[in-house]
Amino acid sequence: MQFKLIINGKTLKGEITLEAVDAAEAEKKFKQYANDNGIDGEWTYDDATKTFTVTE
């Protein structure tokens, strides 16, 4: 399945997509990506659109 991450950071904004088996795997990958890029914020997930959002 394809999942999307919307980044609303203080210095980094944008979207990325990835393939994952389920939402838990996608969340783990997205949070690792955010951590690697210094993004720390409030996370939400919309199951209907398979979209994660992180807002700093």
Rank of each mutant, 00 (worst) to 15 (best):
M1H: 09
M1S: 07
M1N: 08
Q2S: 03
Q2G: 06
Q2R: 15
F3T: 00
F3W: 15
K4L: 15
K4V: 13
K4A: 06
K4F: 08
L5F: 12
L5N: 00
L5P: 00
L5Y: 01
I6W: 08
I6E: 04
I6G: 07
I7R: 01
I7C: 02
I7V: 08
I7M: 12
N8Q: 12
N8A: 06
N8S: 07
G9L: 14
G9F: 10
G9T: 05
G9H: 15
K10G: 11
K10A: 07
K10T: 11
K10C: 02
K10Y: 15
K10H: 06
K10W: 04
K10S: 14
T11A: 12
T11F: 15
T11G: 07
T11D: 15
T11M: 04
T11L: 08
T11R: 03
L12Q: 12
L12R: 02
K13Y: 06
K13S: 13
K13V: 13
K13A: 14
K13T: 11
K13G: 14
G14M: 06
G14A: 07
G14F: 14
G14Y: 13
G14S: 10
G14R: 14
G14K: 12
G14D: 03
G14V: 13
E15A: 04
E15K: 04
E15W: 03
E15Q: 05
E15P: 04
I16H: 15
I16Q: 07
I16A: 14
I16W: 10
I16E: 14
I16R: 15
I16F: 11
T17Y: 10
T17Q: 12
T17R: 07
T17F: 06
L18T: 10
L18S: 08
E19K: 07
E19A: 13
E19T: 15
E19V: 13
E19I: 06
E19M: 09
E19C: 04
A20T: 07
A20H: 08
V21H: 10
V21Y: 08
V21P: 14
V21Q: 13
V21F: 12
D22P: 01
D22L: 03
D22Q: 06
D22V: 07
D22S: 04
D22R: 07
D22N: 15
A23M: 12
A23E: 07
A23T: 12
A23K: 15
A23V: 10
A23R: 12
A24P: 07
A24S: 04
A24T: 12
A24H: 07
A24E: 15
A24D: 10
E25A: 11
E25I: 05
E25T: 05
E25P: 02
E25C: 04
A26M: 02
A26D: 00
A26T: 01
A26N: 00
A26Q: 00
E27T: 03
E27C: 04
E27H: 11
E27Y: 09
E27D: 13
E27A: 06
E27R: 05
E27W: 07
E27I: 06
K28F: 11
K28G: 09
K28D: 08
K28C: 05
K28P: 08
K29R: 06
K29D: 15
F30W: 02
F30E: 00
F30T: 08
F30S: 13
F30I: 02
F30Y: 04
K31L: 12
K31W: 09
K31D: 02
K31R: 06
K31Q: 03
K31H: 08
K31F: 09
K31Y: 13
Q32G: 08
Q32L: 05
Q32T: 13
Y33I: 13
Y33G: 03
Y33W: 12
Y33F: 05
A34M: 02
A34N: 07
N35Y: 15
N35P: 01
N35S: 11
N35C: 03
N35Q: 11
N35M: 05
N35V: 10
D36K: 09
D36Y: 11
D36S: 08
D36N: 14
N37W: 06
N37F: 05
N37Q: 11
G38K: 10
G38A: 14
G38H: 07
G38F: 11
I39T: 05
I39V: 14
I39A: 03
I39E: 02
I39F: 06
I39Y: 05
I39C: 03
D40S: 14
D40I: 12
D40Q: 12
D40A: 06
D40E: 03
D40G: 11
D40L: 08
G41F: 02
G41A: 02
G41Y: 01
G41D: 01
E42H: 12
E42S: 13
E42K: 12
E42M: 14
E42Y: 11
E42F: 15
E42C: 05
E42L: 11
W43T: 01
W43V: 01
W43N: 00
W43G: 00
W43L: 05
W43Y: 02
W43A: 01
W43K: 00
T44V: 11
T44C: 05
T44F: 10
Y45Q: 03
Y45C: 02
Y45T: 02
Y45H: 05
Y45V: 04
D46C: 04
D46S: 06
D46Q: 11
D47R: 13
D47C: 03
D47T: 14
D47N: 14
D47M: 12
A48C: 03
A48N: 15
A48K: 10
T49C: 05
T49E: 09
T49Y: 12
T49H: 11
T49Q: 06
T49V: 15
K50H: 13
K50V: 06
K50W: 07
K50R: 09
K50L: 14
T51Y: 13
T51C: 04
T51A: 03
T51F: 14
F52T: 02
F52Q: 00
F52G: 00
F52E: 00
F52A: 02
F52K: 00
T53P: 00
T53K: 11
T53A: 10
T53H: 05
V54I: 12
V54H: 02
T55I: 08
T55K: 09
T55P: 01
T55R: 06
E56C: 02
